[in-house]
Design a protein around this nucleic acid. Sequence first.
DNA 1: AAAGGTCCCAACCGCTCGATT
DNA 2: AAATCGAGCGGTTGGGACCTT
Length: 334
Amino acid sequence: MGRAPCCDKQGLKKGPWTPEEDEILVEYIKSNGYGSWRSLPKLAGLLRCGKSCRLRWTNYLRPDIRRGPFTVEEEKTIIQLHGMLGNRWAAIASQLPGRTDNEIKNFWNTHLKKRLVCMGLDPQTHCKNSTGSVAKSSASPSTRHMAQWESVRLEAEARLSKESFIPNPNPSSSSSSSSSSPKKSDSDYFLRIWNSDIGESFRRFSKREPMVVACQSSPISQASTSTKCGSGVTIEVAPSSDVADRPEEVECKSCSRSAGGGDDAVEGGGGGSLEASSSNEMMAEMEDLSEETSLRLLLDFPGPGSDEMGFFQGQMMMSNISLFPTLLNETSSY
DNA sequence: AAAGGTCCCAACCGCTCGATT
DNA sequence: AAATCGAGCGGTTGGGACCTT
């Protein structure tokens, strides 16, 4: 598309920044802001291209940059977010105040990646590598990450839909009361994540790739062959006869609205529908399966002996966000 | 002490996307 | 609708710092 170079590179300086250049850039931005990076170097009197100035500012000179080694909590956050988002460093950085995407990327490539390899995990998929016993789907890592998000989101929407069937046993408790209604708030917690930077990042990315949901390890996901979101759009999950090799494809025409109408339905794998007359016991069973499966998908749960679940809860709590808090408490003994 | 190898990170490059013309 | 621009993102690299022999 005839893209012009970002700047006229003739006569512009490259390489490491000098303290003098740093000072000029900082002083200029302090007094003028950084409205246009392209014109900034000329206005500030720097022989650098705008791109270089932006990079220097965002990665090094910004006053809110947090320097120094990564903490253990930050490391775990990066690993978890990388498990969900893949190499989307900017999205990961948005969850780590004061850290830049470049810094996180470097830290990942020089430390965390090696650590995962040493643990016998594929740094891209966070699964056991080819020598291990866990073989996931043939989908690309980014697709799997999206699939995890999408799977959990679908379940959250399905749960909301399902909840709308159940008569409130305690009419005095308002539906907006989150603390006294864990089931309801569980869905809300997910939707809050969904509406956060991470969710936004996922939504933007997912526009570019067809959605493939790999849910072979998920009994409830296999069972959930279709659901309706709040706008009445049906999301189809075609059952597969060989789920280990062929991840089920989902044509998701979803909206971001939660399900709420009384005629929304969640259909079971046997072809039967969960209707409003379903027993509470069945609902409870579905609830348990659904929540555990969702968590495992979301966290790439590595299995017994891991403390990652507990960590993740801590991370989310730090951000005033918790995914299915009651379940996390129950499952933290894994 | 010196040479060679490895690690680490700041900076660059090329691409994509959204906005504008 | 097409071309262009500006910004941002992720992959890659150059070179200094550090380690090993």
